[in-house]
C-alpha cells in the first residue's frame, strides 16, 4: 500500500478492499510477481494505491486483458478489480468467457448496485424499486429488467473453481473477506481455474446516504438479494 490519500468518497468500500488485497499480496510475498488490471470506474486509479505493476483496461475488458497477461506470463499472479457497471454490464461477455475458459486469474468484483463514478446511474445490479440518477422513480422491472446476479451466473460455469460473496462493513466481515481473497489468489497460483470474489459494497454518494446509513441500507436491502457466503 502506498502512503497516499485515496480519492474515494468518505466511507467507500473500495478503500477497505484495496487494503485487504495489498495485505494478502504482501503476506504471500507476491509483490514482485503480481500484475493487477484496473477497470474504468471509481477503481480506475487503484494503481495509485497498491504498489505492484498495473495495467488499466478499457471499460469492461479487464478479463480479456487478464487472460492474455496470465497466458503469456503463467508464473505471474494476475487479477482484475472491477465494479458492477464495468463487469456486469459492458464487460459481461468478456467476464463470462474468461470464466468459461477457466483462466487462472482472480476476478475481484465490487457490487454497489450503481455506477459510482458517473454519478449514481442505474447498473444491471440495481435493486427493484431502487432510486438512481437514471431511475428517479425507482427501478421498474417492466422498463429496466431485473437485478443481475453476476456471481450466481458465473459460478455455474465449469471453468470457475471458486465463487464467494463477501462484504467489508464489519470487522468480522473484513476478516472473512481477507481469507476469501487469500484462497482465491492461492487458487490462481495452483492453476485451479478462475476465482470470482464478489464484494457487496456501499456507494454512499450514489445512494445519497451517509456512510453509516449506507451500511445499514446495504444490510437491510442488498444482503437479502445478494446473500453473503458463509465463509
Amino acid at each position: 500500500m502506498l502512503d497516499v490519500l485515496m480519492h474515494f468518497c468518505p466511507g467507500c468500500s473500495h478503500g477497505t478492499i484495496h487494503k485487504l488485497i495489498a495485505e494478502v499480496i504482501d503476506e504471500m510475498g507476491m509483490e514482485s510477481n503480481a500484475i493487477g488490471i484496473t477497470p474504468v470506474g471509481c477503481a480506475v486509479l487503484a494503481y495509485n494505491y497498491i504498489d505492484i505493476d498495473w495495467v488499466q483496461a478499457a471499460h469492461g475488458r479487464a478479463c480479456a486483458v487478464a487472460t492474455a497477461v496470465k497466458r503469456l506470463n503463467p508464473e505471474k499472479m494476475v487479477f482484475t478489480y472491477q465494479g458492477d457497471g464495468d463487469l456486469a454490464a459492458i464487460g459481461a461477455g468478456e467476464t463470462i468467457h474468461a470464466a468459461n475458459r477457466g483462466d487462472n486469474i482472480v476476478v475481484i468484483y465490487v457490487n454497489n448496485a450503481v455506477y459510482g463514478m458517473t454519478g449514481g446511474q442505474m447498473a444491471p445490479t440495481t435493486l427493484l424499486g431502487m432510486k438512481t440518477a437514471t431511475t428517479p422513480q425507482g427501478r421498474d422491472a417492466k422498463l429496466h429488467g431485473f437485478p443481475f446476479k453476476a456471481g450466481e451466473l458465473i459460478s455455474q460455469l465449469d471453468g470457475v473453481c471458486y465463487f464467494t460473496r463477501q462484504s467489508v462493513h464489519t470487522p468480522a466481515a473484513v476478516r472473512r473477506a481477507k481469507k476469501a481473497l487469500r484462497r482465491a489468489f492461492d487458487n490462481s497460483m495452483e492453476g485451479k481455474g478462475l476465482s470470482f470474489v464478489e464484494f457487496v459494497a456501499t456507494c454512499s454518494s450514489g445512494w445519497k446516504l451517509s456512510p453509516v446509513e449506507a451500511n445499514r441500507w446495504m444490510d437491510e436491502n442488498m444482503m437479502p438479494f445478494y446473500p453473503l457466503s458463509k465463509e
Binding site: A57, A64, V65, T67, A68, V69, L72, N73, G93, E94
Partner: peptide, 26 residues
C-alpha cells in the same frame, strides 16, 4: 507461442493490449 481463439474481436484486441503490456510480441 500462445494461440487463442477469442470470443469476439473486442476481446481479441484487449487480449493484445494485455499481452503487449507485459512486453510480449502479440
Amino acid at each position: 507461442m500462445v494461440v487463442l481463439q477469442a470470443e469476439s474481436e473486442v476481446a481479441a484486441i484487449n487480449m493484445i493490449y494485455g499481452g503487449a503490456s507485459t512486453g510480449k510480441r502479440v
